[in-house]
């Protein structure tokens, strides 16, 4: 099987780290940047995935499948989160006719 080359033999782990940090920062910037809740949720997905990528990379570099199982679990959580989050968006749209996050300003009460 050795003829199947793997990225891990060529690419240093640091590159994956930088890539995943970049994606995470972009996702976070998007969360702060946008007013549309749907877009914010998408940016959250982006952040999830950057963490996933890092987990998978570490898993490969360690030759340990546990990391990939963790990615699997994160997907589960992400799916549940999206389901609930989107239903909240639907409800909000139904109630205030908008998905603008600035309308959610009652958190001080």
């Amino acid at each position: 099987m050795n003829e199947i080359t793997s990225a891990i033999q060529l690419i240093p782990l640091e590159h994956y780290i930088v890539l995943s940090v970049t994606l995470f920062s972009i996702g976070m910037m998007g969360v702060l940047f946008r007013r549309n809740i749907i877009a914010i949720l998408m940016c959250l997905e982006l952040m999830f995935n950057s963490a996933n990528l890092l987990l998978a990379a570490f898993s490969a570099y360690h030759s340990d499948p546990s990391g990939q199982v963790f990615v699997f679990f994160i997907m589960i959580v992400a799916a549940a989160e999206v389901a609930v989050g989107l239903s909240i968006v639907v409800m909000m749209k139904r109630n205030v006719e908008s998905v603008d996050i600035n309308l959610l300003n009652r958190l001080k009460w």
Partner: peptide, 10 residues
């Protein structure tokens, strides 16, 4: 690495 390199973990 804890284990020897193998491309089969995934």
């Amino acid at each position: 690495p804890r284990y020897a390199f193998t491309s089969e973990i995934g």
